[in-house]
């Protein structure tokens, strides 16, 4: 243990870019997840038509699938030899092996957590409250802004926290789609994995400490 810390301190001024890259990717992905997840939860909570449970399982799929499966599916879609990937390549927007790919995978894996948490808290709202607001002259926007979202706020907060933690920790799908390019797509989990692989336990320990600190700040409650 003593040796480990010594190495870490000796290595000190080390490249902090994985921390900033991770925080930036997680923050942007959480923002997307929060908006998309809340919209999906609100929509599906009200939708009564066919395909309701199919949409629900589709939204929850990233939660139950291994991240490498997600990464593989996304590569199949966006790979440079694939139709969609070729099309994006043509306009210069193919995200594979860029930071945008990392944002995409982090969004995909964090979305189900946001969606599920918000939907649970929407389902708990007494339907009479929304109906009362309607009889009191509220339009749908005012209803959403003054009644529904404020009442679902605990779920929104919890969902955002979980989504951020999940986005920060994303490894498998990101490695497959965004790669491990230091200074560009190398996130904290990436840096830990490759530090360990290179036998640099000191650096891995520092990044682990950083992740623990962020997780402690981020933990709900």
């Amino acid at each position: 243990m003593k040796g480990l810390f010594l190495t870490a301190v000796l290595n000190f001024p080390l490249d902090l870019s994985p921390l900033w890259i991770s925080l930036r990717i997680a923050a942007i992905a959480t923002l997307f997840s929060a908006i998309l997840g809340t919209a999906a939860a609100y929509g599906l909570e009200r939708y009564r038509g066919p395909g309701r449970s199919l949409l629900d399982s589709l939204l929850l799929a990233p939660l139950v699938l291994p991240p490498t499966v997600l990464g593989f599916v996304l590569l199949l879609l966006l790979g440079k030899q694939r139709p969609l990937g070729k099309l994006l390549d043509l306009v210069g927007l193919n995200p594979v092996f860029t930071v945008y790919a990392a944002i995409l995978t982090a969004t995909v894996v964090s979305l189900p957590l946001m969606y599920k948490t918000v939907r649970g808290s929407l389902a708990q709202i007494d339907g009479n409250l929304e109906q009362a607001a309607r009889t009191l002259g509220a339009g749908e926007l005012r209803l959403l802004g003054r009644i529904t979202l404020p009442l679902a706020l605990p779920g929104l907060v919890a969902g955002t926290t979980l989504a951020f933690a999940r986005a920060l920790g994303e490894f498998g799908a990101t490695l497959m789609l965004a790669g491990n390019i230091p200074g560009q797509t190398q996130t904290l989990p990436m840096a830990i994995y490759f530090a360990v692989e290179a036998g640099d336990f000191g650096e891995a320990a520092i990044w682990t400490g950083v992740i623990l600190a962020i997780a402690w700040v981020d933990s709900p409650g």
């Binding site: 009479n128 109906q131 009362a132 309607r134 009889t135 009191l136 002259g137 509220a138 339009g139």
Partner: peptide, 10 residues
């Protein structure tokens, strides 16, 4: 509902 001007005591 919002245009009916009806008060409902739940």
């Amino acid at each position: 509902s919002r245009d009916r001007n009806i008060g409902l005591l739940f």
